[in-house]
């Protein structure tokens, strides 16, 4: 059952006060601006056994995403679409607060929100991943391993998935005598857009971008907004126990469009290199 709990990270009272004091005059502990993201580093194709992979560092948050493609039955109700399955795991190596075991609700939410952004933007054109309509389709697994946590795992994980998809090569399967055969050839994935997730949190009355773990421990509310290449909204998730005013939401939505384009330009470089 879902229960309210305190952040597992404890921020000392003095440090918390220092953070709040700085934020009230428009500054942050690491000297970042309120609407400034941490440096984003992306490496692709790091796992040769995978059909696509990426390692993303957003500040000190670090995520590896790997793509494995198989064939299988389509999902019920989506008979003429390939299957896309995005999952995430916060590994026990990622921080002293993580324990091995089944995913907790935060991890389930993380995977579902990342999935929603990719799925609703229709980044991967699943209509083109069908072998035998209604019977056999491509099944694309994107698994994300969080290997170090320092806040904003939502965006870091989303960028890792997008980077892996942008740089992956899908195997070409064919049907011979009713059986699926891997031809050994590869193809570019049918991509339509580049979704970008932007997470903002409210601390007191101030909204800041790309929070660290320390900032998340002091946040009142969180909002994650995903836009597509046309700067349309594709997915939103408000999180954590506080709320936002209507004005704050509308402003956050604008910020997500503007910042989203900056991140998208960086992700776009991957396709240019790849293509």
């Amino acid at each position: 059952m879902s229960a309210s709990k305190r952040s597992t990270i404890i921020v000392e009272h003095l440090r918390r006060q220092q953070m709040l004091d700085l934020i009230s005059v428009g500054k942050r502990l690491q000297g970042r601006a309120l609407d400034e993201m941490r440096p984003l580093e992306i490496e692709v194709d790091i796992i040769k056994k995978a059909n696509g992979s990426a390692k993303v560092k957003l500040g000190d948050s670090e995520v590896v995403a790997g793509i494995k493609v198989e064939t299988g039955e389509p999902f019920e109700g989506l008979e003429n679409k390939g299957a896309l399955i995005i999952q995430a795991e916060v590994l026990p190596i990622a921080s002293p607060h993580v324990e091995p075991g089944p995913p907790d609700e935060d991890t389930i939410e993380l995977a579902r929100v990342v999935d929603r952004g990719i799925r609703e933007s229709e980044m991967l054109n699943l209509d083109k991943l069908v072998l035998v309509p209604g019977k056999i389709v491509y099944t694309v697994f994107v698994d994300c391993s969080i290997i170090n946590t320092d806040g904003n795992l939502l965006d870091a994980t989303s960028y890792a998935v997008v980077s892996a998809l942008l740089s992956c090569k899908l195997p070409v399967f064919e049907i011979h005598d009713g059986k699926v055969v891997d031809t050994g050839k590869t193809q570019d994935p049918p991509l339509t857009t580049i979704p970008v997730s932007i997470t903002q949190v409210r601390i007191g009355d101030t909204i800041i971008l790309d929070p660290t773990a320390e900032e998340e421990a002091c946040m009142n509310a969180r909002i994650t907004i995903t836009t597509n290449s046309e700067s349309c909204y594709a997915a939103i998730q408000k999180g954590f126990t506080g709320g936002f005013t209507i004005e704050q939401i509308k402003k956050a939505a604008e910020t997500a469009r503007i910042k989203g384009e900056q991140v998208r330009a960086k992700l776009q470089e991957l396709t240019n290199k790849n293509g």
Partner: peptide
């Protein structure tokens, strides 16, 4: 919460332009 003007849940799936987003919200 109408009395406090606070949005406590907001989710979206599906594509909305900027104007559609504002209107929908």
């Amino acid at each position: 919460m109408p009395h406090l003007d606070e949005v406590t849940l907001l989710q979206l799936d599906g594509i909305l332009t900027r104007d559609q987003f504002n209107q929908c919200f």
